[in-house]
């Protein structure tokens, strides 16, 4: 969450009458263009999944998905013309999610040998864990 004091939230005076305010309207060509791009990227990611890339496939799939996500956010969700506060707020949620995944992932990785040791010792005669 941004700590810098946001600009004064709203103008002290408001124009006469309804207080007109203008919001950016998304032109149709942009909408259609973004949609076609999204379809293309979907086709790309499906097509690329047929190649045996080994461990690279996750990174590639995530890269394509992130590009698609950016397209949706910037255009369909008007992030391009939105107040910076909303954009920074949404990005902070991504950061906190990454924090959660990262630390939990690294911890499990560190004590995984102890889980494997128990797995291998869980031979048939020790019935402490019925195979699911």
């Amino acid at each position: 969450m941004d700590t810098a004091p946001a600009a004064d939230a709203h103008s002290a005076h408001d124009e006469h009458g309804h207080g007109e305010f203008h919001v950016h309207v998304m032109p149709i060509p942009v909408l259609l263009g973004v949609f076609v791009a999204l379809l293309g990227l979907t086709a790309l990611t499906v097509w690329s999944s047929t190649f045996p890339l080994g461990s690279w496939d996750v990174t590639l799939a995530m890269l394509i998905a992130t590009v698609k996500a950016l397209l949706i956010c910037l255009f369909f969700m008007h992030m391009l013309h939105d107040k910076p506060l909303n954009v920074m707020a949404f990005l902070s949620s991504i950061i906190f999610m990454a924090l959660f995944i990262g630390l939990a992932l690294s911890d499990y990785g560190e004590y995984k040998p102890e889980v494997d040791a128990w797995d291998s010792s869980r031979s048939p005669q020790s019935t402490t864990a019925p195979a699911p």
Binding site: Y111, E114, V115, A117, W118, T128, A129
Partner: peptide, 17 residues
């Protein structure tokens, strides 16, 4: 064991030392 200042959880599904 308070006297030895040691404590470790005993977790099912893995070994702890």
């Amino acid at each position: 064991i308070p006297a030895f200042r040691v404590k470790m959880d005993v977790v099912p599904g893995r070994y702890t030392k």
